[in-house]
Design a protein around this nucleic acid. Sequence first.
RNA 1: GCGGGCGUGGCGAAAUGGUAGACGCGACAGACUUAAAAUCUGUUAUCCGCAAGGAUGUGCCGGUUCGAUCCCGGCCGCCCGUACCA
Length: 732
Amino acid sequence: MNWDPVDMTVLANEQVIDGKGWRSGAVVEQRDMEQWFFKITDYAQELLDGLDTLERWPEKVRLMQANWIGRSEGCRMRFEWAEPFGRVAVREDKDPDVAKARMQDARSVGDQMVMSYNLAKDLFPDGVEIYTTRPDTLFGASFIALSPDHPLTKRLAETSTELRNFRENCAKIGTSEEDIAKAPKLGFHTGLGVRHPFKSGETLPVWIANFVLMGYGTGAVFGQPAHDQRDYDFAAKYGLPIIPVIKPAEGELPDGEAYVGEGTLYNSDFLDGLSKTDAIDAAIAKIEEMGLGERTVQYRLRDWGVSRQRYWGCPIPVINCPEHGAVPVPDADLPVELPYDIEFDSPGNPLDRHPTWKHTSCPSCGADALRETDTLDTFNDSSWYFARFAGPNGSPVDKEEAAKWLPVDQYVGGVEHAVLHLLYARFFTKALRDCGLLDLPSGEPFAGLFTQGMVTHAVFTDEDGDYVVPADVIEDGNQLIRIDNKKLVTKGDIVKMSKSKKNVVDPNDIIETYGADVARWFVLSDSPPERDVEWSEDGVRGAWNFQKKVWRIVEATDVPDHSPMAADPEAKGDALALRRSAHKALAKITAGIEAFRFNTSVAQIYELTNALSKYSGQDAVRMEALGILIRSIAPFMPHLAEECWSNLGGDGLVALAPWPQHDPAMLVDDEIVMPVQVNGKRRGEIRVAKDVSKDDAERLALSEPSVAKFLDGQTVRKVIVVPGRIVNIVAG
RNA sequence: GCGGGCGUGGCGAAAUGGUAGACGCGACAGACUUAAAAUCUGUUAUCCGCAAGGAUGUGCCGGUUCGAUCCCGGCCGCCCGUACCA
């Protein structure tokens, strides 16, 4: 946990800036704290398998979740202790030669080393257990690395100031995955050694390395620098041997970096000549035979830490009894309510500081006991609200109603939720099902998912580094200043709108100026919804003008008494052209809406509107086209559509009117224009009947003057005719 | 660092193997108007050209194909996530 010693609070990774608390500016410490977890890892395989059933989810989200769960197949194995061969304290030496010299200098055996050796043997008599996906590279092993948080590391640190300092240095790096991965490699040589399982008499040194994560596998790895980049970087820095054991099928091993690809084993005794995959199997078989380990499946997914030291959150319903430990609050006493008389004016967890709230009695023995003062991560609430919405009365989830409504047919959310929220919600529904609280066999909460893009905006910061809402920023000459105190403002990155960065805009401004219909039309009209957009009000005039244009067309229409807005099959000339435009537009509008591509539907509505505004006839064709137009805009501009519908003599509410159906016969023109290419470049076009034969198209294309001049002096080698699309002449 | 995505005119974009830039914004010109707004008509990727026309062009490099914005490989840039922002 990130701990701010001044504010006495736990901080999110995001609230740690350059290793300091965002409010207090104090140097953040890493603390181990007792936390509540949900055992989501028990569902790792089911969460992974379930992804295949989510056919209406974007492929990218399924892929991200699969990567997040991170199933890998490999083996757990132990390296047995070897007699110690020395101890050296290697600090962060940039120069590999210096590090190497220290290694050779390491034969002197000191008291401290002997104690560490005995301690290690005492604590872990079987040796060091590691997890690897690459047992094929065991002959390339050159060291063992433990996590700074490995139990052995912690015990060794008790006897070594140097190691304690090393651990503190590692703790400064931060807790986020990104920080750890980007940090420069740091190592500490323990002086301990382990036996190589396949090379008798060989000893591998045991290091502590900051890039080894305690939360994954066993918190220990073997280093095989020739075939893993992190191991390579580490070995290069500390002068450890780099032993290649895989040769690529073609070419040489890369210089100065690890080779992680496929290839054939060498330098590897009984694995020589095998492929990577076969060598993995053979190595595991041998390890199992030797009794040193076994094939296992490992997941990257970690258990979900749900404890938060905040007031706002559902209290974790547990009472800590000195006698009985953590006792669940009895059902009859749920929910545990937060106190209302709470003070936020001093550091630390307000719930923990509250004078009376946490004091209660043990449900088991009645003795004085303390309430858990941690609250639940708010992701808990977003993980099952849809089940609550199905039946909002009575017990938390109404099984019958939830069974009727769930899964959610179409879920819409930002792609930033791709792993956390969407994975937690999937886990929650599965867990609720298994607890008998939800009747949902699949355990999948959302049948369809659409990930809309993020709305982004520049972040503004004033001279004091405080964030400023864009609406409060004005231009002053060629500078930006705050409207309230005239302080100078800097325009920063364009990022996802968020309350914390204050780079948000209020859509009410547009609604007040232009109305909700125009605001909605504007938002839907330009960008496809899955794409990120940088918010801008440029173009809102277009939406406003469009609204007026539709209204003018309706006003300019002589509405007949009986207005079925139905087709006139006899239409000819301009009328037929309008009919065709209307039906072509309708087909694309419908397809666009169904595919969530509202911007293309909008473009087609513009085309239809333009066609209608140029049409002077007051006839059935006009009424038919208007009927299509108004029903098409109804989902986008419902108020305008209702008014127009009513004025055109439409039946009831347009919102309740059936969606219009396009006539397929209207989509095809009698004559089409086919572009003609010569060697892939457009050189002309031919006007042909819609069902022209390939031969005729070829003949016409070759004789088209604008095409023929490019064929002058050349031999026509091939003519490709794609019916209804294009003619391409290959000449040379 | 790792995982995922995106990159096309002045701007939002369309075209997902077949005419690159539909539609909209902006800009420019004209009509109407005392004037402005609104409205209507037209032009608007870049370069050469009076024009006709031609050349170039979808982040960069390469590949597959009769044909690539689209498929494949490599690179660059930006965005999202990276487990305590929610």
